[in-house]
Amino acid sequence: MQITVTVNGAERTVEVEPRLLLVHLLRDHLGLTGTHWGCDTSNCGTCVVWFDGTPVKSCTVLAAMADGHEVRTVEDLATADGLDPIQQAFSDHHGLQCGFCTPGMLMTGRWLLDRNPDPSEQEIREAISGQVCRCTGYQNIVRSVRAAAELSQVKGARA
């Protein structure tokens, strides 16, 4: 079947099997390999992308379901002006090691901050509780999201 999905702002029309998973549409058909996969049971969260502005596990969504919808991936976070504050904060605070969980963490982190610009440590921990990181023990991820909140507030105050 033919589907048209707006990915990172650009319309993409692709011929796919109905069974194709969204994560494979992104990775194998559109070459957006920043979105990863790490399990078969929707538990790990390395595949998180935004679907119409909301984070979802793209391994558990059909590409066909995205026909006519908008998808945003990690590749869309940085702009010509540079890194998104959340990316910058992950770099400053060592919020990543092997980087495999990172795209999913960034997408959820960005979403959380958009809805709640000043989240508590506990709110951050709960927000990423469907996403596993095997390297960082989470602390620096939590710190990075907090730091991004502060960074954004400073920027907002200046603007």
Partner: peptide, 27 residues
């Protein structure tokens, strides 16, 4: 926890990781 220093040290010390640039961009 320790945060990366604003400038790159000449040797040991906290420093932003070079590999982060690609991982953070999904690259």
């Amino acid at each position: 926890s320790i945060t990366a220093a604003a400038t790159t040290p000449r040797g040991y010390g906290p420093m932003r990781r070079k590999e982060d640039a690609r991982f953070l961009r999904g690259k």
